[in-house]
Simulated scan of single mutants.
Amino acid sequence: MQFVDGLTGPLAPLLPASLRQDCDDVPLVEQDQLSPAAADLLMENLAPSLAPQDVAGWSIPQLGAEKVQGWLYGQMLNTGSEEGYRRARKAVIDNAAGVMHIVLDAIKAAGLPREGLVEQIPAWAWVLHEGERYWFGCPVCRYPMTVQLGRVACLYPPHDKALGGPVTVRTPKGRRPAVGAWNHQRVTDLGGTDAIEAATVESHVCLVRPAWRYSVIPGCEELRLYRLLSVMPDVSVTLWPFTDRYDLHVQAGRRRLPWRVDVKDYADPARLVTELVRKDAVRDPSVVIVVPDYRSSQVGVLNERLRRHLGTRRTVAMTSAVFLKTVAKAVGA
């Protein structure tokens, strides 16, 4: 009975100490349903890395996300050029949600189809107030935040944590809903905006959830790094080179070897190592795996396991902050 009761909390206390990982501290249940953090881990470990046609006949609902992402990647490639791919990818990241005609026009201009990519603002994001439906976008990724018990929270746990947890919604009479206090500095550090304002559900749309999770979420950090590197003196940076073979090509000063940066944002470092080893691109000494600063606890595990696999002592993985300092040091900034 104690074991069953423990299944509503983190798995860590139920496991032998030798088998525990950081991700085992994630609570399984929040507000009588699977927690967002646990759902994220489930998606990473359940969906196999197969082509869309390989999973088309599978009946497990979660695998739909894998198919959507494969389809979207194919649509981006169909733009026909590296620049077309770059424009399409950025259009998706910059238009996670918003006014219908603005989102649809941006997607069309980038050469992407609207059908299958965009949907109405989901009911789980509605704030009902004086006969009108409103929604709030996350200040980091701009995707609709979920509403529960008079509070809003981003579906992506690190963004929710940056806000300081779920944010209280105020519903003043005769005015639009507004949110209470939240952590502006931590959101700004992630490249987010400085405002969370209510928008009406009518005439607004958002991306389908898999496109948000697997294109917008990693894209937020990739674009943040690109912008910061672009203003560094004596640094040249290319975003998604060779049609997204990796994320950033960075050349600094007189340094002979460039950095080929692959930005990875996984909840489960063990799953990430498996993916990296399978692709084997990390054997290239110019490749560096960069994780967002909120994944700093993963760096030790990633380096230990990747070094063992590669038979090397070099630093393979680092946080965004450490990478930026490394580049700045290379150019004497």
Rank of each mutant, 00 (worst) to 15 (best):
F3G: 06
T8P: 03
P10K: 11
A12S: 15
P13W: 14
P13D: 10
P13E: 14
L19M: 15
L19F: 15
L19D: 14
L19Y: 13
R20G: 09
P27D: 13
Q31M: 10
D32Q: 13
L34W: 14
A38V: 08
A38N: 07
A38T: 08
A38R: 09
A39M: 12
L41H: 05
L46A: 14
Q53Y: 12
D54P: 00
V55H: 01
P61C: 11
G64A: 08
G74V: 05
G74E: 06
G74L: 04
G80K: 04
E82C: 02
G84T: 07
R87Y: 01
R89E: 11
V92H: 00
D94H: 01
N95P: 03
G98S: 06
H101Y: 12
H101M: 09
L112Q: 05
R114T: 15
R114S: 14
R114H: 13
G116I: 03
L117F: 07
L117S: 06
V118P: 06
Q120A: 13
A123E: 13
W124D: 12
W124M: 08
A125E: 08
E130C: 03
Y134I: 11
F136C: 00
G137M: 01
G137K: 01
C138I: 03
V140T: 12
V140M: 02
Y143S: 06
T146F: 06
R151L: 01
P158K: 11
P158S: 06
D160F: 04
K161Q: 15
K161T: 13
A162T: 07
L163F: 01
T168L: 12
V169Y: 04
R170W: 09
P172E: 11
G174C: 05
R176M: 13
P177K: 06
A178Q: 12
A181F: 07
A181Y: 07
W182L: 04
Q185K: 11
R186H: 09
T188S: 13
D189Y: 04
D189W: 07
T193I: 09
T193F: 00
D194G: 08
A198E: 05
A199E: 15
A199N: 15
H204M: 06
V205A: 03
V205T: 06
W212P: 02
S215F: 14
I217P: 00
G219R: 03
E221I: 07
E221M: 15
R224T: 04
L225H: 05
R227I: 05
R227V: 08
P233Y: 00
W240G: 00
W240N: 02
F242D: 14
F242P: 03
F242R: 14
F242I: 10
D247K: 06
G253I: 06
G253K: 07
D265C: 03
Y266F: 15
A267M: 11
A270V: 14
K279N: 10
V287A: 10
V290K: 13
P292A: 04
P292N: 04
D293Y: 03
R295P: 03
Q298M: 09
L302W: 05
H309V: 12
G311H: 05
S320R: 10
S320T: 13
L324Y: 08
A333N: 08
